[in-house]
Simulated assay, not measured.
Amino acid sequence: MLVQGTEGLLADRAVARVVERLRENDPETERVDLEAATYEAGMLSVATSPSLFGEAKVVILRGAEACSDAFVTDMVAYAEAPDPGTTVVVVHGGGQRGKKMLDAIRRSGAPVVACEPVKKDADRAAFVLAEFRAASRRIDQAAVRALVEALGNDLRELASACSQLVTDTTGSVTVAVVDRYYGGRVEATGFRVADEAVAGNTGEAVALLRHALDTGADPVPLVAALAMKLRALAKVAAMRGSGGPSAKELGLAPWQIDRAKRELNRWTPEGLAAAILAVAQADEEVKGGGRDPVFAVERAVLTVARSSGR
């Protein structure tokens, strides 16, 4: 099996599932772990050789994205004639290193598990829902959003937060519960600033922005959060016209679309255009095109908040 991609949590879980299923069939399955970066010729042959008492084997080969030349040579040969009594799992973190080996594994017909980064908020929200569903627990949609906004950039941290909430709480997880555990994280994020600005709450948006900056937030992701919020509004606004994109084509979760529809009730096309232009200007300035990134992001927040309702 080839487990390939840069998302380490998904790769770890894929390997764990393989080992778990093998040991369900044979509790005596022997596990062997090897590092591809320090691999020396012949190690795979030794690892996959029959056990003394004939137990099944699973060999985990990690770090194949930094593999040695000997690893590539041995894996190409093994892929052509694998041992039917042994399961070999190659974990490759992405990139082109070992391409010959990757091609050989795919040609062999081995299963491939893709572990690519989860980049969209909609996909992170689906991940959170799946975590709670697997634990037979309920979580409100608003609580899902709050959790994604607080921890969504790091899937491993997001999974850990889900686990903590499942373990430490009872009943349905609400926004209040998420705020109790992660309120400080949510409060200082650009997403919260963007929400208040889009709602036209100028004072609250600026206060949250200054708190975020005072606690070490960088202007670049703060502007990015504003841009993401306005893009969602613009996408949903485009749905209103005939021939506009469908909800599926927008790449947004249903709750994001519903929220954007409610928020658009206080926006005019002219106001939305002015806000988008202001954020585009701020984006250029915080990335080196201006002298004062803090001033640039504050001006953008003020413009967005004041454009709401125009």
Rank of each mutant, 00 (worst) to 15 (best):
R259W: 11
A280D: 07
T87S: 13
V186N: 02
T170K: 13
V304S: 02
A70Q: 09
A176V: 09
L209N: 05
V72T: 04
V46E: 15
G290F: 06
L230Q: 13
G289F: 01
I276P: 04
E270V: 14
L165W: 07
E131A: 06
A142W: 04
R259H: 14
T86L: 11
W267L: 12
G93F: 01
I139D: 07
L230P: 11
G271Q: 12
A197C: 01
G184V: 01
L9I: 04
M1W: 06
V89P: 09
D195I: 05
T6E: 15
A237Y: 11
R138L: 09
G54F: 10
A305C: 05
S45V: 06
L129C: 05
A212N: 05
N153C: 06
E149G: 11
L165H: 04
R240Q: 15
V46K: 11
V236S: 11
A130H: 08
S51G: 15
S163I: 00
G203K: 00
D154H: 04
K99Q: 15
A188S: 12
E187W: 03
S68C: 02
A135Y: 03
F53G: 09
A260G: 08
A14Q: 08
I105Y: 06
V88I: 11
E249D: 12
R306M: 00
Q96C: 09
A14F: 08
V166Y: 00
A36I: 04
C162D: 01
S108W: 05
W267Y: 14
R145L: 12
V72A: 08
I257R: 09
G200F: 01
A125K: 05
Y78S: 01
A207Y: 00
E298G: 06
N25M: 13
S49P: 06
Y182I: 00
Q96F: 11
D179C: 00
A197M: 13
M228H: 13
E249L: 01
V220T: 03
S51V: 13
L155R: 03
E30Y: 02
R137W: 03
A224I: 08
S68R: 04
L102K: 09
A188D: 05
A280K: 05
P82K: 10
A81C: 09
K57T: 02
L155H: 04
E28T: 10
F295Q: 10
R266D: 15
F295R: 08
L213G: 05
S242I: 10
I60D: 04
L213T: 08
L165F: 08
R124V: 02
P27Y: 05
L9A: 06
A81I: 08
A212W: 04
